[in-house]
């Protein structure tokens, strides 16, 4: 049956199938992305024709204290959110991996925040931390703690943003780590137990090293996605008081849509793209090798 050509013998036949996906990404993400790059070297606002200004927009942002504050806030929140989330996710994954009654129901509970919108989450968390009647505020007062004054004290605002971000995204981190933990063969632990290893030793020598790739992947993805943080801050503090809780995405939005500085907004946008790519570099390099090795 030599006439029956395998589809893989003519790779060009596969192109029509992938074309719609590529066209969509090009139209909605690639072309706008490149256009942003071009715009970032021009001075423009809506309705005006752009004029070339070189790196002036970049110079302007880098000299703007509000940009630096936004960047600092973003770094603080991203570092806190991602690392706390990984620790919690790992903890819950290990707790669940040891076998539990009603496992399916319990997993459903842990996944529940995944279904909640950012707006919904903001409603929940600001209600719990309501300065007068919030459940958590009253609990904290009851324990003699000072409650969060998140609408007044900028750092408290950022803490609340971090808390609700962790809450929203823990399901993602949990699933990745839990699936990775379940794929570790049981006999490794049995062998360790026969050799008299303590729980801590088998965690250090088996669980942690074998989970490392999944931990790194989860961390990377969460860095990249946490960095985009917009809605939570916008809906909770709006970047205030006095622009003190702005993050980079809020800064970009305000520059573009409130202050009408399209040039600086696009420059901020490209700085975001560049930093995202730097964050993803290790992952992309590894992926590039794997994917291009696949067809060799």
């Amino acid at each position: 049956m030599a006439e029956a050509r395998l589809p893989s013998q003519n790779p060009r036949a596969g192109v029509p199938f992938v074309l719609p996906a590529l066209a969509m990404l090009a139209a909605m993400i690639l072309v706008p992305g490149v256009y942003v790059l071009w715009l970032s070297f021009h001075a423009s606002s809506f309705g005006q024709s752009p004029t070339y200004v070189g790196f002036a927009n970049y110079a302007k942002i880098l000299a703007d204290p509000y940009f630096w504050r936004a960047l600092k806030n973003t770094v603080i929140v991203v570092l806190t959110v991602v690392h706390v989330e990984l620790l919690l996710g790992l903890g819950v994954a290990l707790l669940f991996a040891n076998g539990l009654p009603f496992r399916k129901l319990l997993i459903a509970c842990v996944l529940a925040p995944y279904a909640v919108s950012e707006v919904g989450a903001v409603v929940m968390w600001r209600t719990m931390f309501d300065p007068d009647a919030g459940l958590v505020t009253r609990l904290m007062l009851g324990f003699g703690l000072t409650p969060l004054e998140w609408s007044v004290v900028p750092m408290h605002g950022l803490i609340l943003v971090s808390l609700l971000s962790i809450w929203l995204h823990l399901p993602f981190t949990f699933i990745i780590l839990y699936a990775a933990r379940l794929s570790i063969p049981k006999d490794l632990y049995e062998a360790a137990e026969l050799d008299g290893a303590t729980a801590w030793q088998s965690f250090r020598r088996i669980t942690l090293p074998l989970l490392m790739p999944a931990i790194l992947i989860a961390m990377l993805f969460r860095y990249i996605f946490a960095y985009r943080l917009f809605s939570e801050v916008w809906l909770l503090t709006g970047g205030g008081p006095a622009r003190q809780t702005e993050v980079v995405a809020i800064y970009l939005y305000l520059e573009a849509f409130r202050y009408n500085n399209f040039g600086t907004a696009t420059a901020t946008g490209w700085l975001m793209v560049l930093t995202s790519l730097v964050l993803a570099l290790v992952y992309l390099r590894k992926l590039y090798r794997e994917m291009l090795a696949r067809d060799a």
Partner: peptide
């Protein structure tokens, strides 16, 4: 396929501008 994945990493807010 690789560029599809790389593109997905761009922050959505950036594409809203243009």
């Amino acid at each position: 396929a690789f560029s599809m994945i790389a593109l997905r990493l761009l922050p959505p807010i950036v594409t809203t501008l243009p």
